[in-house]
Design a protein around this nucleic acid. Structure first.
Lengths: 340, 340
DNA sequence: CCCGATTTTGGAACCGGTTTCATATAATCC
DNA sequence: GGATTATATGAAACCGGTTCCAAAATCGGG
């Protein structure tokens, strides 16, 4: 079927080793020989077998990337940044989704380990030390996102939410808001908890102590059902901070369905600035997270650990910022009371 | 570093071949031996090296999936369906994006070929025969989407747009629309052209011959700029059909920005039913394409070709349907004239 | 013209598994 | 009880490359 290097060698009238040298751009090859080999390669339309190569060299040209779910709009840009970096350097990326499932996550780690990947970036939050240790023990560097201070061979990309959150709070203060609510992400998600705390303490500090702090998953329906709960309260908040844009969009939908207008009656703020945030009606004011950069930095961190043999693990910090669109507006004099 | 099978064999006091047999669930292994081997495996926390395995078996547990761009919301569900099928059967998927770039596409094909993938599904439309032939020539089955009748080792998943389109046209006819416009996808895209033609002929047949047929890319901005052009016409259409949901969402944005209300003044219909379609304001009426099924069927087609040694290439047809939401409404008596 | 240094090439071991073939042991049958 | 068959294991070849080591060819200097 496919030709092997030996056949190419025979055809070119040289040895196996020589063909290998030519194909690896090794020096110490005469022009004449190189030409002959390359001719034979062309003639046979020869491709190297990556598996043989990987076996022989003892390493793959693969980097792993672990995400939760491909359909979640949070991840595409991360994948993009990571993949672009890898591709530019001649590497491939093995994309793995955990589907939010622990067993599946374990299977993924095993797969990654078996595949001899050079390094792994994990941008899901539900990965604990016991899972990464399997990789690091095999000498495979790992980089996490918003994780606790790292150990050997594990880097960390930390997203600094404070800045964006503070600007957002400043923003709503200037708009005259006094009553806020928070719809946070899942309580078992480290990042979600960090954000919730920053939000609550920041709001409280500025005199906008939230009238309620709800928790749920990171999906649209969570935003909708949280809003329905908020609507049952005697006094409506004038601004609701959401743990991510999906929640925010769900919240806006539910709000509108109940006849509450955004932003006239209540303002809504999301986090992430996913692609669809600007397409929402109204376009969503949100705290942007540099996700493509996250992918890029994750790769760089791995690269650094690989090259410098720095076992300390390298860390990066990424800044967030506020993107003001149309889902926030100055508070109306007369506050609305829906259910009375 | 990592342990090898030989070490496990030595530890368990058996031969290399025996360990291999145990690990491959081979019959003809005594319970006693199996236990000893598995103990050793556990003790060493041993993993098989996939590259060695692939080299030895001459095939990889990989299936390729070629998409245009990871950030395009059209693809996630396809990936999902495909990957789920693969995982269930113990296979991995190598995800490749062409980034709409020809060189890149070629590189991807080469990579897939080198990787000894079992089969490849290509759901981008800009792949011609010369590219797939490199794969099929190597005995790797390929499945395309909406392609021309296939050759050897190439299957085809055909999306039947007619049904959805006809229902959509029926829908707008019932709503009393008489003037339509269509904003199609790129002219060099086979699927986009098919859709455009079906749309135009269907509309014409029902007496709604489009006042204009615009073409552009498949992105949001194309919808927006097309709408701006439409708005410069003396008479506004009352309904605009878009080549995909992204275009439709861009169209709705631009419409709204110009003070034209959707659906009161003009109705908008998309195609695909991407995740965000129902979150658009107003929620988008669209023709749903069973994308997860597309992924599933693509894998099945490959599987069939692989198992049955059917060189004919297997084909599937997928149906589309209309999803009515809020971006379409009955036409108003008095037609609006914006620029006069 | 000979010798050591340098450039070029081939031979062979090796990477870590799978698999064929042969052998040894146990079970079955007449 | 010996032949026959099923079960269990090992030895070794093989997959298709990379790379170390040694040998051959080329070259410059004395």
């Amino acid at each position: 079927m496919a030709h092997t290097m030996r056949e190419v060698a025979r055809r070119a009238g040289v040895s196996l080793a020589t063909v290998s040298r030519v194909l690896n751009n090794n020096e110490y090859i005469s022009e004449e020989t190189r030409r002959r080999v390359l001719d034979a390669v062309r003639e046979f339309n020869y491709f190297k077998n990556v598996h043989a190569k990987r076996l022989a060299t003892g390493r793959s040209d693969l980097f792993g990337l672990v995400i939760s779910e491909i359909a979640n709009p949070y991840f595409p840009e991360i994948i993009r940044g990571y993949q672009a970096m890898a591709w530019n350097r001649g590497f491939d990326v093995l994309l793995c989704n955990t589907e939010y499932d622990l067993e599946r996550t374990k299977a993924v780690m095993r797969k990654l380990r078996e595949s001899d990947v050079r390094g792994v970036a994990i941008v899901t939050s539900s990965v604990d030390k016991s899972m990464t240790s399997e990789l690091t023990a095999a000498g495979i560097p790992v980089v996490l996102c918003n994780a606790e201070p790292a150990g050997k061979l594990v880097g960390n990309i930390c997203i600094e939410y404070e800045h964006g959150i503070n600007k957002a709070i400043q923003h709503v203060v200037e708009l005259g808001h006094r009553r806020s609510a928070v719809i946070a992400g899942p309580a078992d998600n480290r990042t979600a908890v960090t954000i919730r705390k920053a939000l609550v303490s920041g709001l409280t500090a500025r005199g906008l102590k939230p009238v309620c702090v709800l928790e749920g998953n990171y999906r649209v329906d969570a935003g909708a059902s949280a809003v329905r709960e908020v609507l049952s309260y005697p006094e409506l908040p004038t601004v609701v901070f959401c743990g991510n844009d999906l929640i925010a969009m769900g919240a806006m939908s539910a709000l509108e369905e109940s006849g509450v207008r955004v932003p006239e009656d209540v303002s809504v703020i999301g986090i992430d600035d996913i692609f669809f945030a600007f397409l929402a009606r109204p376009p969503l004011t949100t705290i942007s997270v540099p996700r493509e950069q996250l992918g890029v930095k994750a790769f760089e961190a791995l690269d650094k650990m690989l090259n410098l043999k720095r076992h300390k693990g390298s860390n990066y910090i990424l800044e967030t910022d506020l993107v003001v669109r149309k889902s926030t507006a100055s508070v109306r004099r007369l506050s609305l009371k829906v259910n009375s």
